[in-house]
Amino acid sequence: MQRFFKWVSALLLIVVIIGGGWFWLQHQPSSDSASNKRPIILKSVKVVGVGDSLTQGIGYDNDHQGYLPILRQQLRQDYYVKPKTANFGIGGQRSDQIDRRVQTNKKLRRALRRADVIAVTAGGNDLLQGLEKNILVNSDAQMTQKMLPLKNEYQQKLTQLMADVHEVNPRAQVYLFGIYNPVYVYFTNATMISTAVDQWNQVNRQVADSQSKTHFVDVKSALTYGQYRSANAQAKLKAENQQNDQAFINPATVEKLLQTQNNKEKNVYLSTEDHFHPNKKGYNVMATRLSHEIQNNVKWPKR
């Protein structure tokens, strides 16, 4: 009998050991889940900005960095990537001048060839020079007649610019920013400016849509209207601007505004330095809109 109890006890001990081992195995992480915990290797991505003062970063505390550092931070937060940016913006340049750099500047071409993302700002200076030449016309019909050949010429130049960018790097995704009306909040009824901005902005969209791997980044509404986006806010703004509520404005009035440096600016997205370029909040809008467009066209691992 004593041997029988020893045999039963040994059998129970074996059952407990086997059962405990089975329980332990069932609660161990699978090889798949263990592999999921391995650190993800950060993908290196290169973003190159080329264009005018909106790429250079004028207006943002004079640091000349603009939207690219903000974009770099956003990409780092949203994806498992190690973003590197390069800024090739020069203030005051027209689309043909930017294109000339794309064709001839060795450092820029080398950066473009290595880029995964290329962002372009162009058109503001083309439009500004066209308006300066025709600012004294006194009807919408005259303005349309004067601006039409300039708009067509600009479309040809911008198309060539984007084609040359793609020639340097056919694999990169290219993003073309739209333009905005920086003086809208002061001259809400200046139709000759608003109409011209709308037309130039449409050219940028059409050129982007006409070329492969090219995407339009719309910033017009946010940077033009600022905090006055609703119908009620715009009506209130027009009431405040009754003294400037005319379709055709004296260019000296606009020039005086742009040369005034103070801490007051009606549009919360524009700089008090020149009432023209974005401030930090405005460049944040540009970075965020660009980031959203990038999200639609890349397959980077998301956080």
Rank of each mutant, 00 (worst) to 15 (best):
Lys266Trp: 08
Thr272Ile: 05
Lys266Asn: 11
Thr191Ile: 11
Asn201Lys: 13
Thr195Ser: 15
Tyr184His: 12
Glu167Arg: 15
Lys213Thr: 01
Gln211Gly: 04
Ile193Glu: 04
Lys236Glu: 15
Glu240Ser: 05
Thr195Lys: 08
Ser271Thr: 15
Asn204Gly: 05
Phe177Asn: 09
Val168His: 03
Ile179Lys: 00
Asn267Val: 06
Gln259Glu: 10
Lys281Gly: 05
Phe276Gln: 07
Asp209Asn: 14
Pro149Cys: 12
Pro170Val: 06
Leu270Cys: 06
Asn267Ser: 06
Pro170Gln: 10
Met192Lys: 05
Phe248His: 11
Asn189Ser: 14
Gln246Val: 04
Lys151Leu: 15
Phe276Ser: 07
Ala235Glu: 15
Gly282Tyr: 07
Val185Cys: 13
Asn250Ser: 10
Val197Glu: 03
Thr191Gln: 15
Lys220Gln: 15
Val197Gln: 00
Pro170Trp: 01
Asn267Gln: 11
Gln243His: 10
Lys157Arg: 15
Asn279Thr: 05
Leu237Glu: 12
Asn244Ser: 05
Lys220Ile: 01
His215Gln: 10
Thr214Asn: 00
Asp198Ser: 11
Tyr180Cys: 08
Ile193Met: 12
Lys264Ala: 08
Tyr180Ser: 08
Gln211Val: 00
Thr159His: 11
Val174Tyr: 14
Thr159Tyr: 12
Asn262Ile: 03
Leu161Asn: 06
Ala252Thr: 06
Leu258Asn: 02
Phe187Val: 11
Lys146Thr: 07
Phe216Trp: 08
Tyr180Thr: 09
Ala239Phe: 02
Lys266Cys: 06
Val183Ile: 13
Ala222Cys: 06
Ala172His: 00
Asn201Gly: 03
Glu273Arg: 06
Ser194Met: 04
Lys266Met: 12
Gln261Glu: 08
His215Pro: 04
Asn244Cys: 03
Lys256Ser: 15
Ala252Ser: 12
Asn232Leu: 14
Lys266Pro: 01
Phe187His: 09
Gln202Val: 00
Ala190Gly: 08
Trp200Thr: 07
Val217Gly: 00
Ala190His: 04
Ala172Glu: 01
Ser230Asp: 09
Met192Trp: 11
Asn204His: 01
Val217Asn: 02
Pro278Lys: 08
Ala233Met: 03
Lys236Ser: 15
Glu265His: 07
Thr214Lys: 00
Thr224Asn: 02
Asp164Gly: 02
Glu240Ile: 04
Glu273Met: 09
Val165Met: 03
Gln173Val: 02
Leu237Cys: 07
Tyr225Val: 12
Ala247Pro: 15
Gln160His: 09
Gln242Leu: 02
Val203Gly: 00
Tyr186Asp: 05
Lys146Pro: 07
Tyr283Phe: 14
Gln211Glu: 10
Asn244Asp: 04
Lys146Gly: 07
Ala252Arg: 10
Gln246Pro: 02
Ser210Lys: 01
Gln242Val: 07
Val254Ser: 11
Leu150Pro: 01
Asn250Trp: 13
Asp198His: 13
Lys151Arg: 13
Asn152Cys: 07
Gln211Met: 09
